[in-house]
Design a protein around this nucleic acid. Structure first.
Length: 950
RNA sequence: GCCCAGAUGGUGGAAUCGGUAGACACGAGGGACUUAAAAUCCCUUGGCCAUAUCGGCUGUACGGGUUCGAGUCCCGUUCCGGGCACCA
């Protein structure tokens, strides 16, 4: 009896063994080199895993197993991003506690993950909603509250240093990232009340409360960070988002803008993700120039990246929200300006984003251009944003398309400043060319300064220098990166370790952490922004007993109300990779020893959709912890691989309109048909299982089917994998039918890991067939192991070492989709060679172990090993076995032989040809063959085409 | 509009340093075994031409260029995907 590849039995057996033997437990071992592999941890949704989720996990698991076989001590942990909106939405609908549904989902995920055979060390699992975990989220927040950013040293410092500076010098000489520029003396600081001091420090803290315009989403009842808003609607749910002034907790992410930008140069991420982050950070180097308001002592500052265009300014524009608006509006213009401001306020962010109407109003005042002495009218328009730069611009219509549109609309002058630039139809925005009209030849120069004849680049530099020397302004770098709004008006998130003592936000002492999420009756947020924690009874801080108490006990002296907001989703996911290093430590986020050993993540695998969210926040968070000395590496994720999405492949049946008859794909064009999604699980190779279809949709039980060649062929389309399209493929089903090893192999075989691709069940048989063939390599037809200690032939060794070379190189670069064909070829060759040698077959088992750990374990054991295959050693490549392959003559190669041999470059073609044909090695391959054609190039000989002599 | 990445058979995709395309798999067609089916095995499979054996031409989105040689490098164009977007 032949021995079948019984994958179900094998896989279940090894899952048990791995648990019993704690095969994948990892401990720090300073004698071994570490390697840290990490997947972005999942949010456990109610729908469970579909076939797309494990893609990244499989890819990283292969890498982790590969590194382990190479002798590294590999950390490959897994956990759950358990706080979040869907669990809470579900709780509101069903009244179930989010913890209950979240835990149920986690169990379901775990069950599904376990079937696929990952090498995760579950002993290190983390859950963001676990108090032992979020203690450290609260702790980090507390540290941020107690820190400011020193712009000179470019690092976080204790706020106490800043307080000392204020006490001694006021704001004089202060180098700190700030919300707005403040100016006060040490005396003024000393005179402030406690509350004023608290307010003032909020201007500098890395975690701070501030009254600000926020993205308010009434549909979700919470504020959102910029990256959670897409096209004016919420990323989750697609509810409209409006701008609203609210008092919110924020993180001063912008302080780290430059370091976030610089750090990108030191990490191995895809260029597109780095570019996305660069865009998001949006560094722009420019100049701030002060303009005096005519007939006034007041000045205001504008920001420009085109300092070379100072002589082309024809008007100024203020953002409608600018505080200067009131100042510059003259009495005769007031009514019109007020009407305009009212109009702008009535427009939503979304409206402003979608249609760029040219609107604006003249304020009545003029500003004096310090380079020309001219009076430029000051306008107010919504196209200037309050939040960027200074909220005021100088308009140069000749060289800025927005200014141009405005000037044309309101009939303002346009002065071209670049030789040959035609601005009759549109502005000339390019930063190229030679400057002219600066100053204009027909105008008497106002100052002794000219840019004429310089290139744009030179002119910018010259103007910057002039501005600095004459104290007209300063060189300034602006960033688009905004501070992150850190509070949410939701229940299912980390509570803030904050109470409000007489209006002063105060931190719960470090040793009292964690502050536990209180129970509430009603999880529902309100449309007005009152958070659900307002419903919690046990939610006040007792300063004397240092604990959370019933809010009925609130008094003016010792018991105060707690903060009602909770933290956003990115809070818990920002430092989780550090926690995996030391997940059970109750005294520190991570011990210095563990951090020193594991350093940072060597390989991080996850989706690119987190480019401007999680991947920015966790870099920021880690840089902060680096400044504190908690994390020894400034960048958390050294190498990043973005796995693509697996799309669904939907199937359709075609119903003739108004009838109960379905026609096969090839016949549908003859009729007027309606395509109907059909469950892909009752379709095989695009052929519909008609009986299953009738059972699935009872309303079509009596339907007629028009077949082609006796089959009903379905149409197909590539769509997002989702329930409503009936195209969800559940990994459990694949595991059941083909086994986890086939699933793992097939997901990798489907195409490059980084690429999005549709799930196509049609191809899975090929991978399964390969595993069967691989299995058969080891057993004779009576089911006995047919591996012996015989010598391996040169051919055997060549097949093996070709594979070693390919697999080693490919796994290192994540090119799994090309490794698998190499396995197929090698297996085919060895089968043909009837290879029995342990010297070949044993390394072969090790080579396949990262991909298919179950079958590898089983064979490894059958080969008589006591310990598991994951403790084996990755086979060494011996190039000696490949030497002959430099002269390739594949069996089915149409008689073509390819050589690469070195010759002196001055050798003639004839000499090369003659010598090559006489060459010993060539002779071996050319004997018995007749040379048809030789293609020679100087230095090399490329092709020799031969055919058999007879 | 700006930035990034890409385009190869019926399909997914190989070709890793510029070396003479299409690995591997799917699908399709033909055949063997079988009462039949499943499973398994063998052959063919970019296109066109051919005496269908030998072989020839053509071919990696399109148009040019560099090179003895280009899917690969350079310039331009088209199309698809992703990001940013009144950011001065």
């Amino acid at each position: 009896m032949a021995r079948d590849y019984n994958f179900q039995e094998i896989e279940q057996k090894w899952h048990r063994e791995w648990v019993q033997n704690r095969t994948y437990r990892v401990v720090e071992d300073t004698n071994r080199k570490k390697f840290y592999v990490l997947n972005m941890f999942p949010y456990p949704s109610g729908a469970g895993l579909h076939v797309g989720h494990p893609l990244g996990y499989i890819a990283s698991d292969i890498y982790a197993r590969f590194k382990r076989l190479q002798g590294f001590n590999v950390l490959n942990p897994m956990g759950y991003d358990a706080y979040g909106l869907p669990a809470e939405q579900y709780a509101i609908q069903t009244g179930q506690h989010p913890e209950v549904t979240t835990f149920a989902n986690i169990d379901r995920y775990r069950e599904q993950l376990d079937k696929i055979g990952f090498s995760f060390d579950w002993n290190r699992e983390v859950r963001t909603c676990d108090p032992g975990y979020y203690k450290w989220t609260q702790w980090a927040f507390r540290k941020m509250f107690d820190s400011y950013f020193d712009t000179k040293q470019q690092k976080a410092q204790p706020i106490s240093l800043l307080v000392r500076h204020l006490e001694q010098h006021g704001t004089e000489g202060l180098n700190a990232s700030e919300t707005e520029s403040l100016n006060f003396t040490a005396q003024e600081w000393a005179a402030m009340t406690e509350q004023q001091k608290s307010e003032t420090l909020m201007n500098y803290r890395l975690a701070y409360v501030s009254e600000m315009m926020v993205n308010w989403c009434p549909g979700l009842g919470t504020v959102l960070a910029n990256d959670e808003v897409v096209d004016g609607v919420s990323e989750r749910g697609g509810f409209p988002v409006e701008q609203k002034k609210m008092r919110q907790w924020c993180l001063r992410v912008s302080a780290y803008a430059q370091r976030l930008l610089d750090g990108l140069e030191t990490i191995e991420w895809s260029e597109s993700i780095k570019e996305t982050q660069r865009n998001w950070i949006g560094r722009s180097e420019g100049t701030e120039v002060e303009f005096r308001i005519a007939d006034s002592d007041q000045t205001f500052t504008i920001f420009t990246t085109r300092a070379d265009t100072m002589f082309g300014v024809t008007f100024m524009v203020l953002a409608p929200e600018s505080e200067l608006v009131d100042l510059v509006t003259t009495d005769d213009r007031r009514e019109e300006v007020d009407a305009y401001i009212k109009y702008v306020k009535g427009r939503t962010e979304r409206e402003r984003m979608i249609d760029h109407k040219v609107t604006g109003v003249f304020s009545g005042s003029y500003a004096i251009n310090p380079f020309t002495g001219e009076k430029n009218p000051i306008w107010i328009s919504e196209y200037v944003l309050a939040g960027y730069g200074t909220g005021a611009i100088m308009a140069v219509p000749a060289h800025d398309s927005r200014d141009y549109a405005f000037a044309r609309h309101f009939n303002l002058p346009v002065i071209p400043l670049i030789e040959g630039a035609d601005v009759s139809e549109e502005s000339y925005d390019a930063k190229e060319g030679v400057v002219c009209n600066s100053p204009r030849p027909d105008v008497k120069p106002y100052i002794d300064f000219s840019l004429n004849g310089l290139t744009v680049k030179e002119a910018i530099a010259a103007t910057k220098k002039y501005v600095e020397e004459h104290k007209l302004g300063r060189v300034k770098v602006n960033y688009r990166l905004r501070n992150a709004i850190f509070s949410r008006q939701r229940y299912w998130g980390e509570p803030f370790p904050v109470y409000h003592k007489n209006g002063i936000p105060t931190m719960v002492p470090e040793e009292c952490l964690p502050v536990l999420l209180p129970e509430v009756e009603n999880f529902k947020p309100s449309e007005t922004g009152e958070p659900p924690l307002g419903n919690a009874q046990l939610w006040a801080w007792d300063e004397v007993n240092r604990k959370v108490v019933d809010k009925a006990l609130i008094d003016e002296k010792t018991v105060f109300p707690m903060e009602l907001n909770t933290m956003p989703g990115f809070a818990g996911s920002s430092a989780y990779y550090l926690r995996y290093m030391d997940p059970k430590n109750n005294d520190a986020l991570v011990s210095p020893e563990a951090d020193q050993y594991w350093q940072n993540v060597d390989l991080y695998v996850g989706g690119s959709e987190h480019a401007t969210g999680h991947l920015i926040y966790s870099r920021f968070w880690n840089k902060f912890l680096f400044d504190l000395g908690i994390s020894c590496k400034e960048e958390p994720f050294q190498k990043l691989v973005n796995q693509g999405m697996i799309q669904g492949r939907s199937n359709f049946v075609y119903r003739i309109q108004g009838t109960n008859t379905f026609v096969s794909l090839g016949l549908k064009d003859k009729y007027d048909v309606t395509p109907i999604h059909v469950d892909v699980n009752i379709v095989k190779n695009d052929v519909l299982d008609i009986e299953a279809f009738k059972a699935w949709r009872p309303e079509y039980a009596d339907a007629q089917f028009e077949l082609e060649d006796g089959k009903y062929v379905c149409g197909w389309a590539i769509e997002k994998m989702s329930k409503s399209m009936y195209n969800v493929v559940n990994p459990d089903r694949i595991v059941e039918q083909y086994g986890a090893d086939t699933l793992r192999l097939y997901e990798m075989f489907l195409g490059p890991v980084e690429q999005s691709k549709p799930w196509d069940t049609n191809g899975i048989d090929g991978c399964h067939r390969f595993l069967k063939k691989f299995w058969q390599l080891f057993w004779d037809k009576d089911g006995r192991l047919q591996v012996d200690d015989s010598e391996a032939s040169a051919e055997n060794m060549k097949s093996l070492h070709k594979l070693i070379k390919k697999a080693t190189a490919d796994i290192e670069t994540f090119s799994y989709n090309t490794t698998i064909p190499a396995f197929m070829v090698a297996t085919g060759e060895l089968a043909q060679q009837k290879c029995r040698s342990r010297r070949v077959l044993e390394p072969l088992v090790v080579l396949i172990a990262p991909f298919c750990p179950h079958i590898a374990e089983e064979l490894w054991q059958a080969l008589g090993h006591e310990t598991g295959v994951c403790d084996a050693r990755w086979p060494e490549l011996d190039e000696a076995f490949l030497v002959e392959s430099s002269v390739k003559m594949p069996v089915q190669f149409n008689g073509k032989v390819r050589f690469t041999l070195e010759f002196p470059t001055d050798a003639s073609k004839e000499d090369i040809e003659k010598e090559t044909l006489a060459n010993e090695q060539s002779q071996k391959y050319l004997s018995g063959m007749q040379v048809v054609k030789v293609v020679v190039v100087p230095g090399r000989i490329i092709n020799i085409v031969v055919k058999p002599n007879n």
